[in-house]
C-alpha cells in the first residue's frame, strides 16, 4: 500500500488517511498482544524519543515559565493580585500550555524523525528485507515506536512542567524577594488531582497518536527520496492537527465530567 497523493490536501486523501490510520491502530493493538514484544528495540526507541528530547523540552520549558511570569506579573500587580501569580502560571502550564506545547515540539522532533526514518527504510527496501526474512516489520518498527512515544511524552511533559515551574520562579525572583518555599506553597495551593489527571491522560493520547500517525506516514510513504520528505512533513502536519483535536475533545470531556 502507498499513500496516493501525500503532498496534496484533498478530501479523498484525508478520508483514505483516516481509514488507513484506523486500520493501523487496530493492527497495532493486535500486534501488541499477539506477537513477541521487541523489548530491546523498545528501550532503544525510548532512549531516542525520550532521553534525546530532554534538552529541547528543558530549554523550552524554562523559557515558557519565564515568559509567562514576566508577561502576567505587571497585569496581576495592577490588579493587586500578584500573590496569585505562581498558582496561575503553574495551573496554566500544567493543564494546557505544557501538554500542548511540548507535544507540538515532540511532533516536530520525534514525529518527523519517525516519518523520515520509516519512509527511508521503505524506499531502500529495508522493510521488504525484514518481511522476506520472516520477521514482522510492523512489530519491530511500528509497535516499538508507538509504545515508546506513548510512554515517553507524558514523562517529558512532567519534566517540562517542573522546569517551567523553576523558570517561573526565576522570572518572579528577578522582580521580587519571594522565597522558593513561599513560591512553592502558592503555586500548589490550588492544584488538585482533577487538574493533573485529565492533563496526564491527554498527553498519553498525544504521544500515542504522534507515534501512530508518524509511523503510518513513513510506513506507507511514496517512492523515491521526495517520498521521505513528504512523509516527514505529513507526519508533523497531521500530528499537530490531531494534538489540537484531542485537546478540544479533552477540554469538553473535562468540562462535562467535573
Amino acid at each position: 500500500m502507498e499513500r496516493k497523493s501525500p503532498n496534496k490536501l484533498n478530501f479523498e486523501q484525508l478520508l483514505m488517511d483516516i481509514a488507513g490510520i484506523t486500520t493501523f491502530l487496530f493492527r497495532y493493538i493486535g500486534s501488541l498482544f499477539r506477537n513477541r514484544f521487541e523489548g530491546r528495540e523498545f528501550i532503544n526507541q525510548c532512549y531516542r524519543t525520550g532521553y534525546q528530547s530532554l534538552l529541547l523540552v528543558g530549554i523550552t520549558a524554562i523559557i515558557l515559565g519565564l515568559v509567562l511570569t514576566i508577561q502576567i506579573r505587571p497585569i496581576l500587580a495592577d490588579l493587586g493580585a500578584e500573590a496569585w501569580l505562581p498558582n496561575m502560571v503553574f495551573i496554566s502550564v500544567l493543564t494546557e500550555m505544557g501538554p500542548v506545547i511540548f507535544a507540538l515540539l515532540f511532533a516536530g522532533k520525534v514525529g518527523s524523525g519517525i516519518g523520515a526514518e520509516l519512509s527511508s527504510m521503505r524506499v531502500t527496501e529495508q522493510i521488504d528485507a525484514m518481511e522476506v526474512s520472516a520477521t514482522n516489520p510492523f512489530n519491530y518498527l511500528v509497535v516499538t515506536r508507538v509504545s515508546a512515544t506513548t510512554i515517553m511524552l507524558p514523562l517529558l511533559v512532567f519534566f517540562g512542567d517542573l522546569l517551567a515551574f523553576f523558570g517561573s520562579f526565576i522570572g518572579l525572583k528577578a522582580y521580587s524577594d519571594i522565597s522558593f518555599k513561599l513560591f512553592y506553597s502558592r503555586a500548589f495551593s490550588e492544584v488538585y488531582f482533577r487538574d493533573i489527571f485529565p492533563a496526564t491522560i491527554k498527553t498519553i493520547f498525544f504521544g500515542f497518536f504522534i507515534g501512530l500517525i508518524a509511523s503510518y506516514m513513513g510506513y506507507y510513504s511514496g517512492k523515491g527520496t521526495s517520498g521521505v520528505g513528504k512523509a516527514a512533513n505529513a507526519a508533523v502536519v497531521a500530528s499537530s492537527l490531531v494534538i489540537f483535536l484531542i485537546d478540544l475533545i479533552a477540554v469538553q470531556l473535562t468540562d462535562i465530567l467535573t
Binding site: M121, T124, E125, Q126, A129, M130, S133, T135
Partner: peptide, 25 residues
C-alpha cells in the same frame, strides 16, 4: 520465506545496525 534468501538490488542492509547486527537480526 525462511527457506528463501533474497539479495536486494542495493543490499537493503539495515543502516542503523552494524554488519554483525544485520546478520544477527
Amino acid at each position: 520465506r525462511t527457506r528463501i534468501g533474497y539479495l536486494f538490488q542495493e543490499g537493503a542492509l539495515y543502516d542503523s545496525m552494524t554488519i554483525r547486527e544485520n546478520l544477527e537480526f
